[in-house]
Lab assay of single mutants.
Amino acid sequence: MGSVRTNRYSIVSSEEDGMKLATMAVANGFGNGKSKVHTRQQCRSRFVKKDGHCNVQFINVGEKGQRYLADIFTTCVDIRWRWMLVIFCLAFVLSWLFFGCVFWLIALLHGDLDTDYKDDDDKSKVSKACVSEVNSFTAAFLFSIETQTTIGYGFRCVTDECPIAVFMVVFQSIVGCIIDAFIIGAVMAKMAKPKKRNETLVFSHNAVIAMRDGKLCLMWRVGNLRKSHLVEAHVRAQLLKSRITSEGEYIPLDQIDINVGFDSGIDRIFLVSPITIVHEIDEDSPLYDLSKQDIDNADFEIVVILEGMVEATAMTTQCRSSYLANEILWGHRYEPVLFEEKHYYKVDYSRFHKTYEVPNTPLCSARDLAEKKYILSNANSFCYENEVALTSKEEEEDSENGVPESTSTDSPPGIDLHNQASVPLEPRPLRRESEIGSRR
Rank of each mutant, 00 (worst) to 15 (best):
I87C: 15
L90A: 04
C319N: 12
H279W: 00
A139K: 03
V37G: 12
A22V: 03
V4Q: 11
E63V: 06
Y68F: 14
S399G: 09
L109D: 14
L21D: 12
G402V: 04
S406N: 11
S422I: 10
P194D: 05
G62N: 09
K36E: 10
V272L: 11
D284Q: 13
I375Q: 15
A139M: 04
R67A: 06
V231A: 13
E341A: 10
D213T: 10
K227V: 11
C54N: 08
G52H: 02
T245I: 04
M24A: 13
V26D: 15
G31Q: 12
E405G: 12
T391P: 12
D213P: 01
L425F: 07
T138P: 07
S321M: 14
T6A: 08
L430I: 12
R268S: 11
F92W: 10
D180I: 15
R80T: 03
L216T: 01
L239M: 07
W96T: 08
E311Y: 12
T409W: 09
L105H: 02
V37E: 15
L425K: 07
G31F: 04
T407G: 13
V93N: 01
P163Q: 05
S399C: 11
M188K: 02
V77K: 13
F137W: 14
Y288W: 13
K342F: 05
V131R: 02
Y345V: 13
V278I: 11
V158K: 02
D348N: 08
D51R: 07
L90M: 10
L85R: 03
R67P: 05
T316V: 13
R243F: 08
E280I: 08
V126P: 05
A186M: 09
S173G: 06
L113K: 02
N206D: 10
K125A: 14
R8P: 05
N55T: 12
N55C: 05
N326Y: 05
Y374K: 14
K49P: 02
V4W: 03
L290R: 02
P429H: 04
A186Y: 03
S35R: 11
M211F: 06
P362W: 03
L113V: 08
N60Q: 12
M188S: 15
R243T: 13
K354S: 08
S3T: 06
D121N: 11
C76P: 14
A379C: 09
L417C: 12
F99M: 02
V102E: 00
K125Q: 12
G65D: 03
F98V: 14
A312D: 05
D416L: 08
L97A: 03
D289M: 08
K292V: 03
A70C: 13
V37W: 05
R431N: 15
T23Y: 05
K36R: 12
Y153E: 04
P286F: 02
F300E: 01
Q66M: 14
P362I: 02
F171P: 00
I436V: 13
D17T: 10
T150D: 04
N380K: 04
Q172H: 05
I277V: 08
A237F: 01
K342W: 04
V77E: 07
P362C: 02
E397V: 11
T115V: 12
I295P: 00
E301I: 00
I415Q: 13
M219I: 03
C364E: 07
V222L: 10
L97G: 02
E435N: 14
S3Y: 03
S136H: 03
C130R: 03
K190W: 11
N386Y: 08
R367I: 00
I184Y: 08
M191E: 04
R226I: 14
L324S: 08
G111E: 04
W104D: 00
C319D: 10
C101R: 01
V169N: 02
R367N: 01
E400H: 10
L376F: 06
A192Q: 09
P336N: 15
Y344P: 09
L239E: 00
S45C: 06
T316W: 13
I295E: 00
E340D: 08
P362V: 02
L85H: 06
R268W: 10
V278R: 05
K215R: 05
S132N: 09
C89N: 13
L338G: 03
R320C: 07
T361S: 11
S291F: 01
K49L: 04
V56Q: 09
N32H: 08
C89G: 06
G62I: 13
F262D: 04
L417Q: 11
L338E: 08
D51V: 03
D160I: 02
E433W: 06
H53Q: 04
D254P: 08
W220V: 08
P404S: 13
D160F: 01
N380C: 10
A91M: 12
E405Y: 03
S132D: 09
P429W: 10
G265E: 08
A129L: 13
E280T: 12
K64N: 08
L271N: 08
R333S: 14
G308S: 09
W83K: 11
T407V: 08
D120I: 01
L216Y: 07
Q148H: 02
K125T: 15
A91S: 08
W330M: 00
K193L: 10
E400N: 06
S204C: 08
D294F: 00
F352E: 00
A237C: 09
D114M: 13
R432T: 15
N386T: 12
D410Q: 09
G2T: 08
Y345H: 14
C364N: 02
E387F: 01
E249R: 09
D17Q: 10
R8M: 06
L216H: 07
I174F: 06
C101Y: 03
D296C: 05
G331C: 00
K354V: 12
V170Y: 03
T75R: 12
W81Y: 06
G29I: 06
K393H: 14
F262A: 06
K34D: 15
S144P: 01
Y117W: 01
V166I: 04
S204W: 00
I164M: 07
A165W: 03
N419R: 08
L216D: 00
S136D: 11
E396I: 08
T409S: 08
T39H: 08
I415H: 10
V278P: 00
A370V: 12
L363W: 07
D289H: 07
C217S: 13
R40D: 13
S124Q: 10
M168A: 11
I145H: 05
A366W: 01
G62D: 10
K215V: 14
I174G: 03
T407K: 12
M219W: 04
Q57P: 03
E435D: 15
T200R: 12
T391I: 05
L90T: 10
E307V: 06
P336M: 07
A140C: 04
Q318W: 09
H229I: 05
Y117P: 01
E280H: 10
T391K: 05
T159Y: 03
S45K: 09
E133D: 07
V175W: 08
I302W: 00
A421E: 14
N259F: 05
A189S: 14
L108I: 07
F262Y: 09
T23R: 07
V131D: 02
A207E: 00
A421W: 05
E396S: 11
D112L: 01
F182Q: 05
V61L: 09
S321G: 13
E385F: 03
C130Y: 02
I436F: 09
N378V: 08
S411R: 09
S411K: 10
V12P: 13
A389H: 15
F30M: 15
Q293G: 13
I415P: 14
T355E: 01
S321C: 14
A325Y: 02
N401T: 12
D114S: 12
A237Y: 01
A207Q: 01
F137A: 07
V231C: 12
I281S: 01
C364F: 06
G18T: 05
E133H: 08
R46V: 01
R40P: 07
N224S: 10
L21N: 08
E395A: 08
L201D: 06
H205F: 05
P252H: 15
L290V: 02
A312M: 08
F47Q: 03
A22S: 13
T115K: 04
A140E: 00
S291D: 11
G265L: 09
M309K: 10
I302M: 04
S273C: 09
P252G: 15
K354I: 08
C43V: 14
F137D: 02
E397N: 10
A192G: 07
V93F: 06
H353W: 03
V131G: 02
S35T: 09
I302G: 01
G62Q: 13
P429K: 05
T39A: 09
G33I: 07
A421I: 13
T316C: 13
T316F: 08
G223T: 12
E405A: 08
Y384E: 15
H38R: 09
L105S: 09
D121H: 14
T149Q: 12
S204Q: 00
R82M: 15
L94N: 01
Q255A: 06
Y153M: 05
F73D: 15
Y9V: 14
L239D: 00
T317G: 09
G52I: 01
K20W: 02
D213G: 15
S173A: 15
Y288F: 10
